[in-house]
Amino acid sequence: MEKNKKFLLVGILVLLVLIADQIIKIWVKTNYGPYSPAENILGEWFVLNYTENQGMAFGTTLGGGLIGKLALSIFRVVAIAGIIYYIIKQIKEGAKTEYLVALSFVLAGATGNLIDSAFYDFIFDFDPCIPFNQLEGSGNLMSCTSFGVEHEVEARNTGFLLGNVVDMFQFDAEWPESMPWLGGRQVFPAIWNLADGAITVGILMVVVRQKKYFNK
């Protein structure tokens, strides 16, 4: 495939994943509340369970508070810039199309979660009474009224690169009770989004197909 076609392919893939990811997040955020019950998507093992996290993929964080959140967001920006540079370099060096597809998924996923952190605080109203907007130790005291009683809570900081990431998908399945150490526990308890899924698929493609991608 010609270099220009590879650039076009990467651009289209990233754009499609980003559009789908943001459509799902905005739809979930505007149609569900923080206390909405989980809804079955595919039987009882795959559910929609709306939440928000203050970290990155699958809720990973770099510590709490303003410094940790800023460090995480800056890490995202640097990582995305690095991936873009790497993709451009790989296209120029004639990398296999399938490898570029895998890299496109990782780039799209990382960018999708960055969009949440960067812009959602300017688009949606901030409610400090919602649990996922609270952060113990932040020092950011805000007034909150619950059941008619006003009290102060420590809320997360808001603004550019400080917003939450919207998550909604969850595998609600448990290991068999007969299995040692894992019996009765959830197979994968994390709540995730399409961006997380794209990152995971891209990384798995590289791990499973690395001999094809790096046959030299």
Rank of each mutant, 00 (worst) to 15 (best):
191 I>R: 08
61 T>K: 12
100 L>Q: 05
37 P>R: 00
188 F>W: 13
18 L>D: 13
172 D>S: 12
170 Q>K: 15
149 V>E: 15
31 N>L: 03
179 M>W: 14
55 G>E: 12
69 K>M: 09
159 G>Y: 04
38 A>C: 06
208 V>A: 10
157 N>V: 07
49 N>G: 05
50 Y>N: 13
147 F>H: 04
15 L>F: 10
15 L>I: 05
61 T>D: 15
186 Q>D: 15
71 A>P: 07
203 I>T: 09
196 D>T: 02
192 W>C: 12
154 E>G: 02
70 L>M: 14
35 Y>L: 12
198 A>R: 07
153 V>A: 02
103 L>T: 04
101 V>R: 00
89 K>S: 11
52 E>N: 06
6 K>G: 10
85 Y>F: 15
169 F>N: 06
190 A>N: 10
159 G>Q: 07
201 V>D: 03
91 I>V: 11
187 V>T: 04
108 A>F: 05
140 N>S: 02
30 T>K: 00
172 D>F: 03
129 C>V: 03
90 Q>M: 14
66 L>V: 09
73 S>G: 10
208 V>W: 01
161 L>M: 14
36 S>V: 05
207 V>M: 12
159 G>A: 06
120 Y>G: 04
184 G>N: 10
156 R>F: 03
63 G>M: 13
77 V>D: 14
45 W>P: 09
180 P>G: 07
34 P>G: 02
152 E>W: 01
45 W>V: 09
57 A>L: 09
69 K>I: 10
31 N>C: 06
167 D>G: 09
117 S>C: 06
41 I>E: 10
80 I>F: 08
120 Y>A: 05
